[in-house]
Amino acid sequence: MPKNLLEVQNVYKYFGGIRAVDGVSLTVPENSIVGLIGPNGSGKTTLFNVISGYYKPDRGRIIFDGKDITGLKPHEIYRLGLVRTFQNPRMWKSLTVFENVIGAARDQKGESMVKALFKRLWRKQEEDYARQALHWIDFTGLDPVSHMLSSSISGGQMKLTELARALMSNAKLILLDEPAAGVNPTLARKIFDGIERLRREYKLTFFIIEHRLEVLFDYVDYVYVMHRGRIVAEGRPQEVAENPIVVDIYLGG
């Protein structure tokens, strides 16, 4: 029985009268791929924002890797090994794709405003990171555009850049917010093939929001279904796909 890397315990997040997240509990075991589905406005992205520290939950606790991360700031949560990507890719648009990737590396010595002046303190690390960044660029197939400004690449390539950044950060758990939205079906499958490979070869754990159920269900181990801020169903993909509640939500809107 693998241990749980992420535990969300009874989390609430209200905005005024809107119950965006209304008592959600779920777990993500180590080295697994877990899906989170649900119609638009069901609170999936809000839940991601709560987990990654952008919103403070009104109630409940979030445990990551045995530590309570409730209320920590996003950059502190990143340091513990949890990163997230964004539904609409957020590029650092005046930097190249390569710089976008290397910029996400952790514990950069040269980021200190004093050490930055002394190149010998950080040159070695920077060169290592450059090689590592090129590795992930190869992995994600961004090689042909890696020299371009990140504002000038396609939406699908931006999605891949987000993924490469997340990989560069050397995280244990990666939250992906619709990694295959707006890309063609072939590329979507390729992205998920890559995720599967990362889980196998690099022992990473993924928690994924995705609307393309037909793709998602072929890859995930476990699925949670969210509706109006609550988890209404969960189980293996097969079970969930046959669950009448889920069918009802998706057909009934």
């Binding site: 650092w92 710089e99 980021e111 930055a116």
Partner: peptide
């Protein structure tokens, strides 16, 4: 002084924060 400072990961960090602070936070920039 400024060129030296900016041609370093520190300079990159400043640009990252300027370009998109939400994503900067997600990738560990304070």
């Amino acid at each position: 002084y400024v060129e030296k400072l900016m041609g370093s990961p520190f300079g990159r960090k400043l640009r990252i924060v300027r370009d998109d602070e939400v994503a900067a936070e997600a990738y560990g920039k304070n």
